[in-house]
């Protein structure tokens, strides 16, 4: 069976004066996958999402959602099938968790039960708490609850774990996994590479309004950084280390620390140790780790994701 396309975007552009927030991007989101836009702040992820959610009109390009072509707005029958977690989630003040969920529930044609949603987002004990009394993590869970209550086919999540502590972040990752397992399609934006790696089926790396790389996390990592990364600390000055650049073209040198990719680990390791021996350099620390999307981004842009 051919995979169903939920979103298809072609050459999407959105400019603010001279700022090209989104500059001709194209992608496809398939049913049941976690699709991630990864990129630093200001890359254009949120603008892309806002266009897809109907909050902003795009300047040019073609968008189709659930097989329907969108023009300036997202029609109501499509919004009925979408759940949204915005980057900043505030609610009508003074209402309780249940009252907020009730309001959103009444906006959708085939909603879930409030109890069910409270359980999924683990807010049963906070059902009577006013929204202004919730912690950051609880607020975020309520936001996910409001996105979920309409029983959507597609959920947009704009940096859902930004500003949360590691435990709260884990909780949300678990939830996203569950949504995925229940057949929902998730469109995620994030600037956390771990998040993209753990959750995504497909990652598009975005920078300055453009897509600069795409693929499954594994594919991206292996095609750009090699499978493994070697990090070593040596007791020598820079002049000698520079010589390593002739052997490993992708090497990053930070004072006495060197970082380089190793697509063939034993061979690369041997060449490095041979070089050290030949130059009488003592290797103080040596470690091998899996390369990650951060390495990919660094390699593509020369900058870190959090810059």
């Amino acid at each position: 069976m051919a995979e169903e396309t939920i979103i298809e975007v072609n050459d999407l552009k959105k400019h603010y004066g001279n700022v090209k927030a989104v500059d001709g991007i194209s992608f496809k989101v398939l049913k049941g996958e976690v699709f991630t836009l990864l990129g630093p702040n200001g890359a254009g992820k949120t603008t892309t999402l806002e266009v897809l959610e109907g909050l902003k009109a795009h300047d040019s390009g073609k968008i189709a959602m659930f097989g329907k072509t969108l023009h300036t707005t997202v029609p109501r029958e499509i919004r009925e099938r979408i759940g949204v977690v915005l980057q900043e989630n505030n609610f009508i003040e003074h209402l309780t968790v249940t009252e907020i969920l009730k309001m959103f529930r009444n906006l959708y044609p085939t909603p879930l039960k409030i109890e069910e949603v409270l359980e999924i987002v683990s807010l049963q004990e906070k059902r009577k708490a006013r929204v202004e009394k919730l912690s950051g993590g609880q607020r975020q869970r309520l936001a996910i609850g409001t996105a979920l209550i309409g029983n959507p086919d597609l959920i947009f999540m704009d940096e859902p774990t930004t500003g949360l502590d590691p435990q709260a972040r884990r909780n949300i990752w678990d939830m996203i996994e569950k949504f995925k397992n229940s057949g929902k399609t998730i469109f995620l934006t994030t600037h956390y590479m771990e998040e993209a790696e753990v959750l995504s089926d497909y990652v598009y790396i975005m920078d300055h309004g453009k897509i600069i790389a795409k693929g499954t996390p594994q594919k991206l990592v292996s095609s750009f950084g090699g499978d493994k990364i070697i990090e070593a600390r040596v007791n020598t000055n820079n002049d000698k280390i520079i010589g390593l650049k002739e052997i490993f073209s992708d090497i990053e040198i930070e004072e006495s620390k060197v970082i380089f990719g190793a697509s063939d680990l034993p061979k690369t390791m041997k060449s490095f140790l041979d070089w050290a021996e030949a130059n009488s350099i003592e290797v103080e620390d040596l470690s091998v780790r899996q390369s990650n999307l951060e390495d990919v981004f660094l390699k593509l842009t020369g900058r870190s994701l959090r810059d």
Partner: peptide
Amino acid sequence: VQREKKVLRRIFVAPVD
């Protein structure tokens, strides 16, 4: 106030006109 607190945004991405 609701516009400034982005409550309106949240409501308008739901099927509300």
